[in-house]
Nucleic acid binder design. Structure first.
Lengths: 220, 220
DNA sequence: TTGATATCGTGAAAAGATTCACCGGAGTTG
DNA sequence: CAACTCCGGTGAATCTTTTCACGATATCAA
């Protein structure tokens, strides 16, 4: 029953899709649904059903041939992709955005826990409005080590984002979600950065829309 | 001097990179820098220099052979990708996240304007704390038509996200930035959705980190 | 002007991701 | 227990994207 033996490398886009699928399955499970078909998933995710089947087939252990059992599929994805390994995160920058993001109001899954918040403004770390512990920046390494945190969120202003990113990496953080509108230089293949770049999203949409329009015009 | 004639189709990932590059160039320009090399850009964006050169070469009109003039490159990208076409956006959901995102605190580029905010809670649209006009949901179509808005931001709770997305699309919106933690069904190729999915980002990082670790273990 | 150096631009090769098409197993029906 | 239908699984074909390698062009110094 070779499980780890032939664990192949999954295309990155497939990882991203499966990660999203996982959240979808969580939602469906909460709604009380128990089975789902590839075609249905595809519709919900906006991708063709064969893409879904292929993605799932990379896991090499899923279905029985007739639909997917939601809880089971969810667990297989979590296990295969290692979701259960790194559940703790910390956040640097307790301004308004940082506070909103980490408030348990449904904008982040309760599967993960943001266990520590940092800011170098003492005022910001006084307010006990959050569900997590707040610390000054000087405690960064201590807390990350103690809590074994591997994921960091950056919500500091532009000017200090890069510095903070480097500090996090030095403290052993392996994954960063960056909300600050600045690009972070990465030159280590063992650290992953997800830039959530609101200004960039506008540009991307703008470009996609007008590229689509051009295509239409050319085609006619 | 055929410009539009041989306008080729640019790979989507290249569009996304160029869109990000644009924001980088804005930053650099603001810092007073005037020239930049592909290697430098690559370092800042975390991609190899040849990828940058290739991306820029899709534009077919850029360099002189020795570095890029920042302002010029910026303008070429904007022109080619149509950034100057759709600058107006609206936002639905004036809760805390919606308010933070649209506050001019540096989290979104001043190149775009969120000109209207909607909410169906009359309380939320009373506070004059924002820089934009606020309306009840009933005015959606009227305002979108009048202002010729093509981009919409969704910051409503999970339960109504899908409904809101459909309403926006019905009103003629062509690009959506969705912050709600729910997947939106799209079955129109003329509407583009960018899901900013915080819970999903955690999963993705978690998966990338553990996939990396597996690779390391296998390789040794 | 000439040579040396640095950097871009791009066609072609390689790698990577998606789509296709068909096989086979699981339910279902009579 | 066939026969039929519906789906998932997956190798192979196709399509897309990235990487490579090298010719061409600009810059600078002497």
């Amino acid at each position: 029953m070779k499980k780890d033996m032939d664990r192949m490398i999954i295309p990155k886009p497939a990882i991203v899709r499966l990660s999203t699928l996982y959240v979808l399955l969580e939602n469906l499970e909460a709604e009380g649904k128990s089975m789902i078909y590839s075609a249905e998933i595809g519709k919900l995710l906006g991708v063709p059903s064969h893409t879904i089947r292929k993605d799932i087939s990379f896991l090499r252990q899923a279905g029985t041939g007739n639909g997917y059992e939601i809880t089971n599929l969810k667990n297989i994805i979590a296990e295969y992709l290692g979701f259960n390994k790194y559940k703790k995160a910390c956040i640097v920058g307790m301004g308004r955005l940082g506070t909103v993001i980490t408030t348990k109001n449904g904008f982040y899954s309760n599967q993960y826990a943001v266990v520590a918040g940092f800011d170098n403004n003492p005022e910001k770390i006084k307010k006990g409005r959050n569900d997590m512990d707040l610390y000054p920046m000087s405690k960064l390494k201590e807390v990350i080590d103690r809590e074994q945190i591997k994921i960091g969120i950056i919500t500091v202003p532009q000017s200090s984002a890069r510095k903070v990113a480097n500090e996090l990496i030095d403290c052993g953080i392996k994954g960063i979600i960056n909300f600050s509108p600045v690009l972070i230089e990465i030159n280590r293949e063992d650290v992953f950065i997800r830039n959530i770049f609101i200004a960039g999203e506008f540009n991307i949409l703008s470009a996609l829309i007008s590229q689509y329009e051009n295509k239409q015009t050319l085609g006619e």
